[in-house]
């Protein structure tokens, strides 16, 4: 009796397994082989009613899950955004750097940098923390041939001179520094004078000690004079662009006359500069 029962159980078990395999084989590659549609016809309406009835509960659970998921998604998107932002900034910086380098190359090829000078391109790596923007640090030094008093230009024009240099870095004192004075001339009027900063207003310069005042007008260019006399010479080669005359409220009656100048370089955003090494002063 017991053996018969065991045999029957085995037969049922083996039969069910075999039947499952047969069904798998028969319906291979065709879903449920049409049985699904028959079941759908029977269970479909019931399923629809049950589905509608359970929808609020489903929505509630899914809302909780979505909330958890959204939190994780938000954190991931924030990370992605930060990454994309840094890449975009890097891209913009590269574009700007490229623009500046092109202008620097243009400065050289235009002949504004006199022959005999060897330009050394450097990146600005530090800035003076004061509001006066008087000095910047660059990543090139004496190892690259840079010496103290070498003139420094940006893509837009003269920015200053080297005031200190070590092997791999140097400090540039800008022409906006309070102690700076550059002999300049106004073209095409030909008037010469001394360019000094207007302290506290970066980019605003003033020409003093003009040797003549006639013919000076707004928007005329201001360039380095680059004088030489016996053993003395200007630190700057001649004809380096500096800026343009903003206004010229000259009064013949004043003993000291001055001309306001708008500098070409943006001293707040110096990224790349060229140090003019070698060459003769003036």
């Amino acid at each position: 009796m017991y053996r018969k029962q065991i045999r029957r159980r085995r037969a049922v078990f083996i039969g069910l397994v075999a039947l499952a395999f047969v069904m798998l084989t028969v319906t291979f590659g065709s879903g449920s082989g049409g049985v699904g549609s028959a079941f759908g016809a029977v269970f479909g309406p019931i399923q629809n009613v049950a589905s509608d009835a359970l929808k609020p509960a489903r929505d509630l659970i899914n809302w909780f899950d979505d909330t958890f998921e959204a939190k994780g998604e938000r954190e991931r998107l924030e990370r992605d955004l930060a990454k994309a932002r840094s890449e975009a900034v890097a891209g913009k910086a590269a574009v700007e750097q490229n623009r500046q380098l092109r202008k620097l190359v243009g400065l050289k090829s235009s002949g504004r940098i006199p022959s005999g000078y060897r330009p050394v391109t450097a990146s600005v790596v530090s800035r003076s923390p004061t509001m006066w923007l008087s000095t910047v640090g660059i990543d090139r030094g004496t190892a690259d041939g840079i010496e103290v008093d070498d003139p420094v230009v940006s893509a837009d024009g003269l920015v200053g001179t080297i005031s200190a240099a070590s092997a791999n870095e140097a400090t540039v004192t800008l022409i906006t520094d309070g102690a700076s004075a550059v002999s300049v001339k106004i073209v095409p009027s030909g008037a010469q004078g001394v360019l000094r900063p207007r302290i506290g207003s970066a980019g605003d310069l003033v020409i003093e000690f003009l040797d003549e005042t006639s013919g000076i007008g707004q928007d005329q260019s201001v360039v380095t004079a680059g004088w030489r006399e016996d053993d003395l010479a200007s630190l700057y080669p001649p004809n380096l662009p500096i800026g343009e005359v903003r206004d010229a409220p000259l009064d013949e009656r004043e003993a000291i006359q001055s001309v306001s100048v708008r500098a070409y370089p943006d001293f707040r955003n110096l990224d790349l500069v060229q140090v003019l090494t070698g060459g003769s002063r003036g």
Partner: peptide, 15 residues
């Protein structure tokens, strides 16, 4: 029944 309702290969869930 589950396979039939979900139109899955019959026998897969059964096994």
């Amino acid at each position: 029944v589950s396979d039939a309702m979900m139109d899955a290969p019959l026998g897969s869930s059964s096994l």
